[in-house]
Design a protein around this nucleic acid. Sequence first.
DNA 1: CTGTTAGCGCGTTCAC
DNA 2: GTGAACGCGCTAACAG
Lengths: 318, 318
Amino acid sequence: MTKPLTILDIARLAGVGKSTVSRVLNNDARVKDSTRVKVQAVIDQYGFLPSKSARAMRAQRSGVVGVIVAKLSSNSENTALTGLLNTLYAKGYDAAIMESQFSQLKAQAHLDVLKRRNVDGIIFFGFSGCDLSALAPFAPNCVVLAVDSDDYSSVSYDNQGAVTQVMAHFYEQARHPIAFLGIDEQDETTGRARANAYLSFCETHQLPVHLHRCEMSLHAAYDATTSLIGPHTQAILCASDTLALGVAKRLQTLGREDIAIGGIGNHDMLRFMFPRAVSVELGYHQAGQHAADLLLKQLDDDAPVISHWTQPCHLVTP
Amino acid sequence: MTKPLTILDIARLAGVGKSTVSRVLNNDARVKDSTRVKVQAVIDQYGFLPSKSARAMRAQRSGVVGVIVAKLSSNSENTALTGLLNTLYAKGYDAAIMESQFSQLKAQAHLDVLKRRNVDGIIFFGFSGCDLSALAPFAPNCVVLAVDSDDYSSVSYDNQGAVTQVMAHFYEQARHPIAFLGIDEQDETTGRARANAYLSFCETHQLPVHLHRCEMSLHAAYDATTSLIGPHTQAILCASDTLALGVAKRLQTLGREDIAIGGIGNHDMLRFMFPRAVSVELGYHQAGQHAADLLLKQLDDDAPVISHWTQPCHLVTP
DNA sequence: CTGTTAGCGCGTTCAC
DNA sequence: GTGAACGCGCTAACAG
């Protein structure tokens, strides 16, 4: 455990002053090339790394952004997270990632910790019934993902477009009536927005409505399947690929592979298990990147302005 | 955006000196009760939060541990991560999480960043061909997960036990010969250790060997299935549940549901899609917790001692 | 172009 | 029991 070198050590080793080393570190133009090379050589030789703690303290910014996801095990969330992290790292930021586990209490506790850590901003993955007002202490340096908000910048998915695209796909193939499996209306996006898009499509195209809701789980979808199937049902659209996997499995055991299945999220597993299923790529990865970009732009900006982005989606067919 | 108060502001507001406030913050006993109450009142009133950056710089420790996973989308890794984070947060530490994406280069870059951040320790999720020597600058404050190491503390899975348990299960049911689908031998754990356990079991029990290897993916497993099936094959054991899912799907399409299937990892999706499959719970969550505990113990310890833990596993049958 | 100086916010001596 | 002074590693302002 040798003590790490400081900028002063490097200065002495290179026979220059502290600030010259600092200038080299920060690519300040006002350094003679020969000096720069000399200093850089010493830096490289000793593998010197300037302390971020000291920089953070000096600059009053930690270079860390807090990220609160609901569940790391969620495919959508960890995909978005990967995109987000790449962007953050590329710009020299680090992330403090925490799980809310769909609990407002946990989210609040994490926000308190992040506040103490002087994080420069927050990226918050919304969930059913989350209270965005807890983000107020960080305003305007926060971005919410997967939910809409007037108060903060947001990146949301095209719930309506996703549903409409699958519906149109089935409709054009004359695969109707189409049933819909959604989740609790309390969930504004996956729950309400997607169901509404379904209802709206049915109305516009004069299709009968078969809407059912269940918990967001494979088993719940599996169990709900029978109540979705009417005498003429030709297709079932599910509010998420997880639900679609549950339904597809049930249809398989029922030998009802005549019924088409659609999901939302473009989950690898759905594509693999049920290649005939259609799904919608919501663009989790890009959404994550965009959220990070948005936040970083706000951080750099002198007069941050909140903005809203809806991630484009596209149908994925076999 | 009002500028946050400093310890000096609080001191003035409370009519005391900086260091008294500092003592109150750190629960130093040498403060008169009446003063403590007075100072605490001011702290509460203004919601003062001492800057972690300044503390980190002063104390030369950041209260942050770096965590390098291979891929967040991996079920095993994000499950372990969840366990790990809970433990860290409970003890007041934060985590800086980064993805190596199975690349030694990325891992190295992340380690450099973490070094500059003065993280107090590292938890590293091993992957095929990773070079643990990159962790040297952090020794002995690191723990590696899912791989063995003599140089650092480690938490590993019971690869041999897992394979043996499934093999024994099939054997007792007289479901043999048993084929095995593994991955590249370059991977010491999922690849070599599990294959060796299979070979060893076959030898001990005088079973014929049908071993095949493929990439770690659903599709690769799907494609490899046919070369696994011999004329009398009664069961197939896969080195992971991902492989098992691929194989099970192929068997399903082949109508060979007479062949039993076994996996390792206890993935929800395998249980749901193929309820008859057996798998082994490796204890990802507890392993994550244990890794965090191990690291924190080493950090607190004056004379840290590296230790090794093998996470117990258990068979999961329908 | 480069060295010197003065803090950033906090914890830790050392005096009182 | 308490306050003043110093320094952690770094950058910015000011000299030279």
